[in-house]
Design a binder for these strands. Structure first.
Lengths: 234, 234
DNA sequence: TGTACATCAGTGAACGCGCGTTCACTGATGTAC
DNA sequence: TGTACATCAGTGAACGCGCGTTCACTGATGTAC
């Protein structure tokens, strides 16, 4: 264990931060949650194992903190990405790109954050919905709805649910790209971010077209629409 | 440990199958790979722990076998799903639905299969590409290309790469739906399969439209296209 | 038909390991009088 | 200014546990002569 000067009186909080940092580094370096043991973290910080328990009630609380910090940084990256984009579609795509890039840059944390059964301790439920990063996605969808990209449903009360649903779908697509690229990095992706943008763009476009021809049109009708023909006569 | 009659002479293979089954059941029941220990599996089968090593060289070999069986069953489910669909788009969507449904029905196995770093033992690399389930997806894309849904690129030699790329994108979307629904089941999904189909459909449609207006058109131009207007004059 | 032997499918006990966590203790720092 | 005491931020040693894996052994079954 490395030597380490004792912290001055009121600075317990500082060690707490260092512990979270060290855990995040271990997670990323070994690409594996199992490498993040209390002993390993303590060793990296230069402190004895029981010292961890002065700042976290149990190991899961530490892992939760690592996750929380991950989402905070993700949101910062997304905020940077959308700044300066004026058209809602471009902003949406910038958000998706940033999401995927951040995941690829921190694969172990992403895998941990999304490969985890809720278990008992962590309230993963609407936590994710309240997460700033997801709210940002939902706002992006709101921008598309405003310019009429997605039609606003007739009863205004449904508007929120509609936006939420489109945001969920876009999150699904961004997550699919991030998650599959991380899980199978040896597939012939080519340029990661180009593929991610392409798939997000297709989703945005397709969603818009679907609202024109109906959500459940059979294949033959969709084909005729895309070709510019009228629907098949029944 | 449960009592268990000794296997007759040539039937070592039978126990092997029972071991894989037991491991798969443990994985699904506890929703956690950590629950699949050599001891737990041996106990479930009614055999002593060392007996496992008569059939698998180490624990990872057993887990690999569980994965392999998972993908085999997935391919069967997809084969059933596409049987009887005539239009390529409908076949594609049926494949996606089956993929997502199977993942939701076996969440722990799916999470394990895709939440795993390759590590050292398993050649995950093009294994996934050679997997029957993925070939089936690629064939589905081939059907769409044939009817002109996706334009065939000019040099015929690129055709294979193009199909592969579209298949990768669709896999990305299906995986996103499956994976996010498993990871965050408490999000307001509504009807799982409906959302999955919707997102796959949007992807198919969007991909087709993108081939008409260019892959990287800026937001404003895309908007004008969807509205039926000519591109913004430069 | 009988007997010695090889094979096979396992068993029981033990190995060393790293883990999360607890508990009694320490010694520097601040504070009250 | 000096002294007794409380607080704080840790330490060192140990706990019990379950794990993957190994090793010497067993006893039923088949086979050769």
């Amino acid at each position: 264990m490395a030597c380490r000067a004792r912290s001055p009186r009121g600075s317990g909080e500082q060690l707490r931060g260092e512990i979270i940092d060290a855990a995040a580094v271990l997670l990323e370096e070994h690409d594996n949650v199992d490498a993040v043991s209390i002993r390993a973290v303590a060793d990296a910080v230069g402190v004895s194992p029981p010292a961890i328990y002065l700042h976290f009630t149990h190991k899961n609380a530490l892992l939760d903190a690592v996750c929380g910090r991950y989402f905070d940084h993700l949101d910062e990256a997304m905020a940077d990405a959308e700044a300066g984009k004026s058209h809602p579609l471009d902003r949406m795509l910038a958000l998706g790109r940033a999401y995927v890039r951040f995941a690829i840059d921190h694969p172990a944390a992403y895998r941990f954050a999304f490969g985890h059964t809720g278990g008992e301790g962590t309230p993963v439920v609407d936590e994710a919905l309240r997460t700033a990063a997801f709210r940002r996605l939902a706002d992006g969808v709101g921008g598309l709805v405003e310019i009429g990209w997605y039609p606003n449903p007739a009863p205004a009360a449904d508007s929120h649910a509609h936006t939420l649903r489109m945001a969920l779908e876009l999150w699904t697509v961004a997550h699919g790209a991030a998650s599959l690229m991380i899980a199978k990095p040896d597939l012939p992706w080519g340029d990661d971010l180009q593929v991610a943008e392409s798939v997000m763009r297709a989703s945005c476009l397709g969603g818009s077209v679907m609202s024109l021809i109906g959500d459940n049109a059979p294949g033959a009708d969709v084909e005729r629409f895309v070709a510019g023909l009228p629907p098949t006569p029944q």
